[in-house]
């Protein structure tokens, strides 16, 4: 019976490992699976195999995977879309931040993978180690522990008024802090924009870039910017445990700024 239960555990660990999104978790899961497998061998009256599996299949294999990951692992970027910083173009990713990220990846010899997620999910993903960086329309709020890079693009939070009615914001976004009590929140900036267009809302608290995007795509018509709330800047946010990545990113951005490339990229996208 114990063998059967251990078999079930081994399979569960393997399935857990192989269904992760993040490679690191996959490697750790496969390592745990190997250890459980060694236990199965012990129950099957194969102590030699168990010992070898534990020493080679578990220890050495996990070590070389981890070292290879440290050497080549991809950087996972959790992001929300915002034009022209980071947005999807068909299957591809484009934008100012993407251009910087791509060069950073090449500099580090790492692949960049972008996860498109809701704004409110980003802190959880960073804390759980499912993502290394946050980018796009991510403006960290008070109490969210992240390592911030130097500012890339200045912006500010503003309240937009289009008519009578309550004021809305994106869930988890900086705008929520400035929302009058009782104001509705939306998962996705797109939903907020549609609510605004349908007239359900009388206004929204968003950042300047978002507003510009909406205006470019005619999502909001007659808008009055009611009050200047706060000056901010878009920047990359690094997961709290990733000091090495943060240092590397700061060093890289410093080089980019010193060579004038950062200004050139900014010029190209923001005019």
């Amino acid at each position: 019976m114990a063998t059967v239960l251990l078999c079930a555990l081994t399979l569960a660990l393997a399935v857990f490992a192989l269904t992760r999104r993040r490679l690191l978790w996959g490697v750790i899961g496969v390592g745990a699976h190997s250890l459980a497998l060694a236990g199965v061998y012990l129950f099957l009256a194969a102590p030699d195999v168990a010992l070898t599996e534990a020493a080679v299949g578990f220890a050495l294999v996990t070590f070389i995977y981890l070292l290879a990951l440290r050497r080549t692992g991809r950087l996972v970027v959790a992001a929300t879309e915002v034009y022209p910083l980071l947005y999807q173009e068909g299957d591809a990713v484009a934008g100012l931040e993407w251009e910087i990220l791509e060069r950073f990846g090449r500099w580090l010899h790492r692949d960049i993978e972008v996860l498109w997620v809701a704004r409110a999910d980003i802190p959880r993903l960073l804390a759980a180690g499912e993502a290394d960086l946050a980018a796009g329309g991510f403006l960290p709020r008070e109490g969210e522990r992240v390592l911030l890079s130097r500012p890339l693009v200045p912006t500010r939070m503003i309240a937009v008024r289009t008519g009578p009615g309550p004021c809305g914001a994106v869930a988890g976004d900086r705008g929520q802090d400035h929302l009058p009590p009782g104001g509705p929140t939306y998962e996705d900036p797109e939903e907020l924009a549609s609510a605004l267009a349908r007239g359900e809302l009388g206004g929204a608290v968003v950042d300047l870039l978002r507003l510009r995007e909406w205006q470019l795509r005619d999502r909001v018509g007659e808008a009055e910017t009611a009050a200047v709330e706060e000056d901010l800047a878009f920047r990359f946010a690094v997961a709290p445990g990733e000091e090495e990545v943060h240092q590397a990113l700061e060093g890289f951005l410093g080089e980019l700024e010193a060579s004038g490339d950062l200004a050139r990229v900014r010029e190209r996208y923001l005019g």
Binding site: G26, V30, L69, T72
Partner: peptide, 11 residues
């Protein structure tokens, strides 16, 4: 991803 493929092969 190649490393994912190798992990699968490992299992």
């Amino acid at each position: 991803n190649v490393i994912w493929k190798l992990l699968g092969l490992n299992v």
